[in-house]
Design a protein around this nucleic acid. Sequence first.
DNA 1: ATGTATGCAAAACATTTGCACCTGG
DNA 2: CCAGGTGCAAATGTTTTGCATACAT
Lengths: 138, 138
Amino acid sequence: MESQDLRKAGLKVTLPRLKVLEILETAKQRHMSAEDVYKALLEMGEEIGLATVYRVLTQFEGAGLVSRLSMDGGHAVFELEDGSHHDHLLCVRCNRIEEFIDEVIEQRQRTIAEQKGFEMTDHSLYIYGVCRHCQQEK
Amino acid sequence: MESQDLRKAGLKVTLPRLKVLEILETAKQRHMSAEDVYKALLEMGEEIGLATVYRVLTQFEGAGLVSRLSMDGGHAVFELEDGSHHDHLLCVRCNRIEEFIDEVIEQRQRTIAEQKGFEMTDHSLYIYGVCRHCQQEK
DNA sequence: ATGTATGCAAAACATTTGCACCTGG
DNA sequence: CCAGGTGCAAATGTTTTGCATACAT
């Protein structure tokens, strides 16, 4: 019963919000742009405006229900927040996104921030490359 | 004689390109957006269009003369390429940008890419935080 | 001369916002 | 009922592009 999640986040349980959540939970791809979510809603027969999708995703981010990844090229994709911090590997050919966790890197980052006198609030790490699958097709 | 750099890069030596290069080399701030460069040119009395600044910076990036950092919010800043790979620390208060090099992280990234079957082509790491300077002012 | 570069204005893009209307609690 | 949510269209901010003109070699 996901309405609970919304209520807990201080958000009214509205149809657009429930539907966006549903898309994120059931989509084949874990990482979706606002546009992706919007298209999925249309395919599902829901009449929800793109502006609303943006607003809802931004609210979800604020509520900690999803996290936003800023891809370069200035567009963002969202993923359901599952509590575990992780970083991303991106295939430059097929745009596949994989996730990884590495405690050594996490620790080094904290050390570096400290050395530089920074109070670390966040960090983002993307590794770009050609994934296994794409390496095979020439 | 920076005209050499341009020629080597296969770019004609034109006034806009020389001036942009000059700005990048003499500016107080190492990291500049296209808009920053454009404003600096105006202050210098040069009549160069913003579109040209974008084109020139993109060509410089292709030629390996500068590198582009994608800040979130979908805008980019450029820095002169000095050959040394480094990552960045960003102050979320004053937008100051500091650089660091960490061989441990570099190595871990290679290992992770390999484990995941990726042929790594690049990576980007940003640590966000509050810099020493900003921590003092409450 | 001639293939590139440039300037300008318009287009493109992802995202945000103003506002009148609708809706959940 | 009423604060908050939504849809639409228009605005935004950054970057790109089309095209006629100007320039480097």
